[in-house]
Structures are given as C-alpha cells and as structure tokens.
Computed example of a mutant assay.
Amino acid sequence: MNALLLIVTIAGQRVALPAEAVESVVELDTLIPVPRAVPHVAGLSALRSRVLTVIDCRRSLELGATDTSGPIREAAVVELDGHHYALIVDSVEDVVEALSDPAPVRAAMGPGWERASCGMVETEEGALLLVDVAALIAGTEAKAA
C-alpha cells in the first residue's frame, strides 16, 4: 500500500486519516451553533465562501466533547457526498506514506474507535489506527443504521 496518510491527534491519540480524503487543513476561528443538531455536530463555519459542517471528532467517537470555547480549532476539511465538513482534531502532525495495508486491530478499543476504525497501518512513525472519515461524520448515528 502506497497511500498517503495524514497524522492527527484525537482525544490524545495519534491516528491516521486517508490523505486522499482531506482537501485541506485549516484553523477555524468562527463556529456558529446549530440548534437541534446531533451532538457530534459542533456547528457551522465558513471557508472560502463555503459553508462547512463542523464535526467534533471526540464526540463522534463517544470520548466526550471538545472545548470549542477557544478562538482557534484545528480541523481537516473533507468532502463526502457533495457536502464539506471540518473535522475538529486536537492537532495535525504530518503526512506519511502507509507501508502496509490495514490489518485488524488486536486490542480492545472503545465502541467509538471500533466503529470508526479501518484497522492498523504501519508507517515510518510506527503503527497507527486508520480512521474512516465517513464514520466520523456519521457519529453514533451510524450504529442505529
């Protein structure tokens, strides 16, 4: 596997997102709450005249809520089914090459990680959990479907 991966930190855990799914990495400075939105939707933000639905990755993974009271939040911008999303992460590190195909995870993880996991991928940075962007966007709603 020669795919590129974006290393991010979510809830203190270093994980990988498929770089091909990520349009850009940004710092969000405005977050508008959305009444009656599902809990993992932190709100809306704008980027280059585009409206982004902002996803709280911690909440999507059932790991509590991200503190969104600060002025700036790092996010990975992705597109899924014609809609643009900003995935709030703790930090963005680097882009690396996957040295293996995803392998099954051989450890117990929380239900959120298990739902969003595509498996473990070897990189020059060591083994990283590959996270499914669509599962982050769907949040716990994916379990009900």
Rank of each mutant, 00 (worst) to 15 (best):
A75F: 05
A86H: 01
G70R: 08
P71W: 04
E74T: 13
E124M: 11
K143F: 12
I72Q: 08
Q13K: 12
L47M: 05
D101H: 14
R115G: 13
V133Y: 06
R115D: 14
L129D: 01
G12I: 03
G139I: 02
L128Y: 00
D132E: 10
G112Q: 10
T66K: 07
M1C: 07
E27V: 05
W113S: 04
N2C: 05
G119L: 08
V121A: 15
R106N: 10
V54H: 02
L44F: 11
G82E: 11
E97V: 13
E27C: 02
A19L: 12
T140L: 07
Q13V: 06
P35G: 00
M1P: 15
E23D: 06
W113Q: 02
R115I: 11
L6M: 14
A21M: 08
G119V: 11
A116R: 08
Y85S: 14
R106M: 09
E114Y: 07
E79A: 13
L128Q: 12
G119N: 10
A46L: 03
D132K: 06
A76L: 08
P18M: 05
Y85W: 02
R14G: 05
E93F: 10
S49Y: 02
G70S: 07
P33Y: 01
V95K: 07
R14L: 08
R58W: 09
I7F: 12
G112I: 03
P102K: 14
R115E: 14
E62H: 10
T53R: 10
G112H: 03
C118V: 10
V22G: 13
V8N: 06
G12S: 04
V41S: 05
G82D: 11
L47R: 02
E23C: 03
L31M: 04
G126K: 02
E125D: 14
V77K: 13
V105C: 15
A42Y: 00
G139Y: 00
L6R: 15
T53Q: 14
A103E: 14
L31K: 01
A75R: 09
L6T: 13
I10Q: 11
A19N: 09
D90Q: 12
E79L: 12
P18T: 10
D81A: 14
T123H: 01
E62M: 15
G139D: 00
V38H: 04
R73V: 12
D132H: 03
P39N: 07
H84V: 09
R14K: 11
L6K: 13
L44N: 05
G12H: 06
S24M: 06
R115H: 09
V41F: 13
E97G: 14
G64P: 07
A37R: 03
A134Q: 05
R115P: 14
R48K: 05
V95Y: 00
A107E: 09
E122D: 08
A21Q: 12
G110E: 07
A19F: 02
H83W: 13
E74F: 08
